[in-house]
Simulated assay, not measured.
Amino acid sequence: MTPRFGDAPESGRRYVTRPGAYVILPRAGSLLLTYQSHPYPEFQLPGGGIDPGEGPIEALHREVFEETGWRMTRPRRLGAFRRFTFMPEYEIWAEKVCLIYTAMPVRPLGPPTEPHHVPTWMPVAEAAERLGNPGDAAFVRRFARSSRR
């Protein structure tokens, strides 16, 4: 069973299943994150929803570029988690099924194309504390433990 992070689903509320792909992008002890300033400010793993007809890896490449302006390579799946949340940008309650990957950041191609996003490099330990959702933070902590071995 896929673990759940965050609030439990509310009884009687209808949730739209929303699959997404997110990535941990390490380089020299830091992670490439995106800082989203709207609809509320938070640090996030780059990534987002998988569009109809799109696979998770294709979505991951698109989302990383849109949110950071960077190109990445060699994605490898680490796991998945679920969370139940309101998505104000779409005005829906969603059961987000979050597929988590790690990959290598290659180089920036330009600024993010998605409004309100700023690419941000942050030390791994700090990222685990400052990420906006507990599922992302849990995967970053797990990644940090496995990379020390």
Rank of each mutant, 00 (worst) to 15 (best):
Phe43Gln: 04
His38Trp: 14
Arg13Phe: 00
Phe65Val: 08
Arg13Trp: 00
Glu67Gly: 00
Tyr35Trp: 14
Val16Pro: 00
Thr34Gly: 04
Leu25Cys: 01
Gly69Asp: 05
Tyr35Val: 10
Tyr40His: 13
Glu66Ser: 13
Arg71Asn: 06
Trp70Asp: 07
Leu25Lys: 01
Glu54Cys: 13
Thr17His: 02
Glu63Arg: 15
His61Arg: 13
Ser11Met: 12
Arg74Gln: 11
Leu31Arg: 00
Gly49His: 08
Ile24Leu: 10
Ser11Thr: 14
Gly48Trp: 01
Thr73Glu: 15
Leu32Met: 09
Gly29Pro: 02
Ser30Val: 03
Ser11His: 12
His38Gln: 15
Val23Tyr: 00
Gly12Ser: 04
Ser11Glu: 14
Tyr35Leu: 15
Gly48Lys: 05
Gly48Pro: 02
Ala59Cys: 01
Arg14Gln: 03
Gly12Val: 02
Met72Asn: 05
Arg14Glu: 01
Glu54Asn: 13
Glu58Met: 10
Tyr15His: 02
Leu60Ile: 10
Thr73Met: 14
Pro41Asn: 07
Leu45Ser: 10
Ser30His: 15
Gly29Ser: 05
Leu32Ile: 11
Gly53Cys: 09
Pro46Tyr: 06
Asp51Gly: 08
Ile50Glu: 00
Tyr40Thr: 07
Gly55Lys: 04
Leu60His: 04
Pro26Arg: 00
Ala28Thr: 11
Pro56Trp: 04
Gly20His: 10
Leu45Ile: 09
Thr68Gly: 12
Gly53Glu: 06
Thr68Lys: 10
Leu33Lys: 05
Ser11Leu: 12
Phe65Thr: 11
Gly29Cys: 04
Trp70Lys: 08
Arg71Cys: 07
Leu60Arg: 10
Val64Trp: 02
Glu54Asp: 11
Ala59Ile: 02
His38Asn: 14
Arg76Pro: 04
Ala21Leu: 07
Ala21Arg: 05
Leu60Gln: 04
Leu32Val: 10
Ala28Tyr: 13
Phe65Lys: 11
Ile57Asp: 08
Gly20Met: 09
Glu42His: 15
Leu32Arg: 07
Met72Ile: 15
Gly53Lys: 05
His38Thr: 15
Phe65Asn: 11
Gly55Thr: 14
Arg76Gln: 13
Glu54Pro: 03
Arg74Ala: 12
Glu63Ala: 15
Arg76His: 12
Gly49Leu: 07
Pro41Arg: 13
Thr68Val: 10
Val16Gln: 10
Gln36Pro: 00
Gly12Lys: 08
Gly53Tyr: 08
Glu63Val: 13
Ile24Cys: 05
Thr73Asp: 14
Leu33Ala: 04
Pro41Glu: 13
Arg27Leu: 14
Glu54Ser: 12
Arg14Phe: 02
Leu33Arg: 02
Gly49Pro: 03
Pro52Asp: 10
Gly47Cys: 07
Ala59Gln: 01
Arg71Ile: 10
Ala21Pro: 06
Leu45Trp: 07
Thr73Gly: 09
Glu42Phe: 11
Gly12Phe: 05
Glu66Cys: 09
Met72Phe: 08
